[in-house]
Simulated assay, not measured.
Amino acid sequence: MNQTTPEDAMKGISRRRFLLGGGLTLGGLVLGDAVYREPRAFQVEEVSLPLAKVPPGRELRIVHISDLHIRNFHGYYKDVANAIASLSPEVILLTGDYLERNRSIRNVLKFLKMLKAPQGIFAVQGNWEYWARVEGENLRRHFAGVGVTLLLNRRHDLTLQGVPVSILGLDYPSATDNLLLLQRRADPSRLNLLLSHVPAFAHESLNDRVDLILCGHTHGGQVRLPFVPPFYLPRFSGRFVGGLYQVGVSGTPLYVTRGVGTSLLPVRFLCRPEITIFRLHAAQ
């Protein structure tokens, strides 16, 4: 008959305490990373993309950000603005969700005032602008006051490195009739960049006039685990999570950024915030 000695019992208790303590420590580290470090540890993602309408020897530098979800203006957003400035973009493109339901438009404008691009800053609005009831012409006037052009199903023309470019702003929720309207207005001889807050819309209606689509909305899933699909993606995300895709009959490149801020819960895990710099150059 085996008997458990006091020494054996103490060893078992010590082992359980060790495993419990290790688990609590690991959980604390993960929680600290998700709540305090990662939501402010943005990454600069560089995307080098060949496009047929960019002549040889030219390179267009464009910064894309989205999903700021600014509640309070603090040092993190200053760091984001400084990082964008260091990339020397010709144009900055914004794809929606700038504020939260507390209607923090003043804090959004503080951030936007810090952004500089010689050829302009262009934006579309997202679902949070509608939910906060700071949308449409109201938001357009606010943005114009700080040098940002809000495109409500409109086209804006400019020239980058001698290349004629059009920014096409598709308003949320990217309805098919608005997409068709913008495509009819697009000049096929120009480089046409389409901004949409959401990535999931009528891609089957795309034609070869649109050369690149930029979107946000998904936050990249915000909380991720290896080899596991995102726990949650908002409506109109579809199959898109983050990164570069090809859509439509012409295989139009569509890029989804992970965004700068957080929504619903102020956490990120294995899904850091993102600033994207595009280097658009000639196709080989």
Rank of each mutant, 00 (worst) to 15 (best):
I277T: 15
L170F: 08
S174H: 07
Y76R: 06
I65R: 13
V165Y: 03
V249C: 07
N153E: 13
V165S: 05
T276S: 10
T159V: 15
T262H: 12
G221A: 00
P226N: 02
S196V: 00
L29A: 11
P226Y: 01
G21E: 05
P164E: 12
T95N: 04
H219F: 04
L49V: 13
N138T: 15
N178R: 03
P199A: 01
G28D: 01
L206T: 10
D33L: 06
L68V: 15
T176W: 00
A85Q: 11
R103G: 10
V35G: 06
A52R: 14
M1P: 14
H64Y: 07
L193M: 01
V210S: 02
G57L: 09
R103T: 09
P226C: 02
I13K: 15
E100Q: 10
M10I: 05
S166A: 15
R140K: 15
A34N: 01
L139E: 13
L29M: 12
E135P: 07
G220I: 04
Y98G: 08
V247N: 00
E7L: 02
V223H: 05
L29W: 11
L270W: 12
D157C: 05
P39C: 00
L264M: 12
G238M: 10
P273L: 00
L152C: 09
V44P: 15
G242A: 14
T95D: 07
A175Y: 14
Y130E: 15
G243C: 01
V163Y: 01
A283M: 14
G21I: 12
T95R: 00
R133C: 03
N178H: 06
S166T: 14
P89H: 02
E45G: 04
S237W: 04
Y245I: 05
P55M: 07
I121F: 01
H69T: 10
K78Y: 07
V148R: 01
V148Y: 10
R15F: 11
V134I: 10
S250L: 00
V256L: 03
P188F: 13
E135G: 06
F42A: 11
D211I: 03
T95V: 01
S86P: 07
V134C: 06
L180E: 14
F143G: 00
T276E: 08
V163F: 01
V241H: 00
E90T: 08
H64K: 09
H281P: 04
Y232M: 05
G57K: 08
L265W: 13
Q183E: 14
P56F: 03
L168I: 07
S237M: 05
M10V: 11
A202L: 04
N107H: 15
S48V: 14
N82W: 02
I92E: 14
A9L: 14
P39E: 00
L152K: 05
H203D: 08
A52I: 03
N82M: 09
I105S: 13
V256P: 09
V260E: 13
V163A: 10
G75M: 02
